[in-house]
Design a protein around this nucleic acid. Sequence first.
DNA 1: CACGAGGCCTGGGCGC
DNA 2: TGCGCCCAGGCCTCGT
Length: 293
Amino acid sequence: MPELPEVEVTRRGLLPHVVGRRIAEVVVRHRGLRWPVEPDLESQLAGRVIARIERRGKYLLLECVRPDGEAPGWLLIHLGMTGTLRVLPQAPPPGTHDHLDLVLAEPEGAGDALPGAATSLVLRFRDPRRFGAVLWSLLDESKLPTHPLLSKLGIEPFDPRFDGAWLYRLGRGRSAAIKTVLLAGDIVVGVGNIYASESLFAAGIRPTTPAGRLSLARCERLAEAVRDTLARAIERGGSTLRDFVGSDGSSGYFQLDCAVYDRAGHPCRVCGTTIRQIVQGQRSTFYCPSCQR
DNA sequence: CACGAGGCCTGGGCGC
DNA sequence: TGCGCCCAGGCCTCGT
């Protein structure tokens, strides 16, 4: 499910409820995610305080500090295709795919009138397909970008350095289709299969165009389309944030009314031409053969 | 190096 | 109703 907008909306939804809380207990029910959950995750995390939540690409990065301030570490969470993170005031019994819970206590010294269960929250990771990941890293902030899973990522779409010139420069010499190159994530992160098709439609670019053949002007249109498409999706998701706690999992996720994605055989909303579906790199691509040249 | 295919998993929808 | 097949929004890893 999640592309960058869903991950960002999850981050924003978690922030007010989770940051500053202490991890009282870690319950791992299924260690077989994309990579095995480290055997000592429970002992590493217990007693730490979640100090910050950052995002890099589609990875959520939770900084978890010890009360003594020693050995700060990061919990890296990737939602894969079907992952969700939810905050539950009264955690229902876990379902089959609820692989991990962090039981979060009230911050220290915050009026412990009713200590224990009444004031604790559960942060629950669910992932039916288990393409997601939960990893522990002791790298400090300055070294975190060197983590093997983060080091090869392209820049953030909202980084001011990401523009047409960036796209143009890094696309030189690449013969692969622009859709495939966007998806690869080594030039810019966060563009998944849906928003790749949507961004290319917004820019009027045929998905099969070799990346290296795009003019600077077209790269500028595409960079703008990527930013706008993602920003609009985040905005849309943001409207569900007030329901973030205790939701059934639908909130934080959203149906963008797509221009082309999943609309094969339907008329283009702009020109009426029938939307086409093709396969690129074993993934579906949708485009309007008239609007996109 | 760049590229494309394979593989990890489960669940839902479809045709028979 | 049941079964098998295909498909799914990610992305790392490997072979060419």
